[in-house]
């Protein structure tokens, strides 16, 4: 499967996506503006809390082309963070001790040629490093087989997508053979101690719905995952994050093509939870794009909605200025406030 960009789809253009998300796919489709919901909850304008997490997208290149990907990542994407931009991120970390966690994402972040150097440098600064590893990259090529050991050496927290504990749902979303390779990769991670009690090596999994529906309760689902993976594959992990799909990029394309867009959005709006809204991840996170621009979250990044005011690039990072900003919101934000809420760390309410 090609990325939307390679297909020259209009949905590869951020402004086209925003037009659909904000105003609907047809003139008589109206949803309550997200801003109004926030106002009623006493949360507008949405203000940041002190930033603790620097989430860095180090490239859109990926060995997979998942149907739901909001990044539109894939083997045909060439956008990759340069070592110069990475150094600018390191400089920011050096000067801003409140940024305690660095969350590396992509694409497959491991495909960036400077990935290992970057992880080593961040770890040397004493920061907690999370890597959003798609699992199959570990099996994709011999040069990646030692990734579990590399992660272990640097105390990296591994966060991996596994849409379900059965093959059919996983492969339908992420491609044929992904489930089998994921099981083998998890086994390799378990073998070096990841997900095992007492090792301190954290392996968290991410569930996201393989279709136009919302995630179930995270806690109950985690129990089912643990039981199923242990019984069927003798695999262990620490926690499961249940994430809601946001109507962006390939997932937006899927919703529109399958005729589910309107009912899905209505469901998100009907499930708005003010407690989840108060705890959205954009309040304590700064997202950095592959080219160094700054965003409130990874979703705004894909919609090219840069931070509102102040320094907009990592090379001109000013923590105090960013702290004063209002977070940019839109109709897509309903995805993070539905039900128990959703963030890169799962449910928030």
């Amino acid at each position: 499967m090609k990325s939307l960009k390679a297909q020259q789809s209009i949905l590869a253009i951020a402004q086209e996506q925003i037009g659909i998300i904000q105003y609907g796919p047809r003139a008589d489709f109206m949803l309550e503006p997200f801003q109004d919901k926030l106002e009623k909850s006493g949360l507008f304008p949405l203000k940041p809390l002190p930033a603790e997490i620097l989430q860095i997208n180090i490239g859109k290149m990926c060995n997979q082309t998942c149907k739901h990907c909001h990044v539109d990542a894939g083997p045909d994407r060439k956008e990759i963070m340069t070592q110069e931009t990475m150094q600018q991120c390191l400089d920011v970390l050096q000067e801003n001790r409140h940024l305690k966690t660095v969350d590396l994402t992509g694409g497959a972040p491991e495909m960036n040629p400077h990935f290992r150097w970057f992880v080593s440098e961040i770890a040397a600064l004493g920061r907690h490093v999370m890597v959003r590893c798609n699992l199959t990259i570990i099996r994709a090529n011999k040069k990646y087989h030692d990734l579990p050991l590399f992660y272990k050496q640097h105390g990296v927290e591994v966060v991996s997508s596994l849409p379900f504990y059965t093959q059919d749902r996983t492969d339908r979303q992420r491609g044929n053979g992904v489930f089998e390779d994921s099981m083998k990769a998890l086994q390799m991670l378990n073998e070096v101690g990841y997900g095992k009690e007492g090792t301190g090596l954290i392996l968290n999994l991410v569930y996201n719905p393989a279709g136009a529906f919302l995630p179930p309760a995270q806690e109950a689902l985690e129990r089912e995952y643990k039981q199923a993976l242990k019984e069927r594959f003798n695999l262990e992990f620490n926690h499961l994050f249940a994430i809601t799909n946001l109507p962006i990029s390939r997932y937006l394309d899927y919703l529109l093509a399958s005729g589910n867009y309107e009912s899905y959005m209505e469901k998100l709006v009907a499930s708005y939870n003010p407690v989840a809204a108060a705890n959205v991840m954009c309040r304590n996170t700064i997202s950095v794009g592959w080219d160094g621009y700054l965003y409130d979250c990874d979703f705004n990044q894909m919609l090219e909605l840069k931070v509102n005011g102040g320094s907009q690039h990592i090379s001109a990072f000013r923590s105090e200025e960013l702290q004063q900003r209002a977070i940019v919101v839109g109709q897509h934000c309903y995805g993070c406030t539905a039900g128990a809420g959703s963030s890169c760390g799962g449910a928030v309410a």
Binding site: D168, R169, P209, G211, F213, L214, P216, E224
Partner: peptide, 10 residues
């Protein structure tokens, strides 16, 4: 039907 799919039934 939606609820059962959400809760992981095949």
């Amino acid at each position: 039907s939606t609820d059962a799919v959400e809760k992981g039934w095949s």
